[in-house]
């Protein structure tokens, strides 16, 4: 049986991890490659790098860290942030990324998803969706796509958009609730379920994890194929192993043989 996946996410700026990572025995907690190696050893099912470098000048540092990660980590790695054209996808794949996530560029030019999927195969194209709830109390739930870190509304319905991305050849959806991101109150389960049930491709739930029960809910109530979290792992609140054991005890099929690889 296919297992549900647990994915730690590292936010990277100018080649360094931001938001902070505080593993116990890391020499340099800000080095993304060291973090990646630690998560690989810990049995993470995949890893996600999200580049939040504002300028284009420092893109080289991202490529370099993807290359160095690929040399030492033998697990799937998704890289996203600032991907604007199919050429950016190619560069990251050649550096060693297994999947590349496209966010804003796909909102403004949806054809980039068709082009990238045709060229590189849909298995490596992840569409990242940042959504916020726009329905009021008592109304039917509705979510809208936001860009620019959740500041700019687009008027696009998140569920319709996800279906379109599926049809255009995306291989997976990375779904972040901008209402919940960093809030540690759990995923927006209504959003997760609405999108996961509407598309044929796997959905990664993201945004809001504060406890291990939140991870369980993302799969059980949100119908996600994978759950992504950052701070609960970076700060050592929970280890990857604890989280996976907890999810398994809750009845979720998890891979428990990956530790200490």
């Amino acid at each position: 049986m296919l297992k549900k996946r647990l994915i730690p996410c590292l936010d990277v700026k100018d080649g360094r991890v931001v938001k902070g990572v505080q593993f116990v025995d890391l020499i340099d907690a800000g080095d993304p490659v060291e973090c990646a190696i630690a998560y690989d050893k810990a049995g993470a099912d995949e890893l996600c790098f999200l580049d939040i470098t504002a300028s284009n000048e420092n893109r080289g540092t991202l490529i370099d860290l993807v290359e160095r990660t690929a040399e030492q980590c033998f697990m799937p790695v998704t890289v996203g942030g600032g991907v604007r054209k199919p050429e950016d996808v190619r560069t990251l794949l050649l550096a060693g990324a297994d999947k590349v996530s496209i966010n804003t560029a796909a909102v403004f030019d949806r054809d980039i998803v068709n082009k990238a999927a045709e060229k590189f195969g849909n298995q490596c194209i992840v569409v990242a969706i940042d959504a916020k709830k726009v329905s009021g109390e008592g109304e039917a739930e509705k979510w809208e796509i936001f860009t620019h870190g959740g500041r700019k509304p687009t008027g696009i319905d998140a569920v319709d958009y996800a279906k379109d991305m599926d049809a255009r050849g995306a291989g997976e959806i990375l779904l972040t609730s901008m209402d919940r991101d960093g809030a540690k109150i759990g995923f927006d389960l209504g959003l997760t379920r609405a999108v996961a049930d509407a598309v044929k491709i796997p959905v990664i739930a993201s945004g809001g994890v504060g406890t291990l029960d939140h991870l369980v809910d993302g799969v059980v109530k949100g119908h996600a194929s994978a759950v992504l979290a950052a701070s609960i792992f970076h700060f050592g609140t929970y280890s990857i192993e604890e989280a996976k054991q907890y999810m398994a005890k809750a009845g979720i099929p998890m891979r428990l043989d990956g530790y200490g690889d």
Partner: peptide, 11 residues
């Protein structure tokens, strides 16, 4: 209900 691609860890 199974998603396509078959993506992830399996036995």
């Amino acid at each position: 209900a199974l998603k396509i691609p078959h993506m992830g860890w399996n036995k």
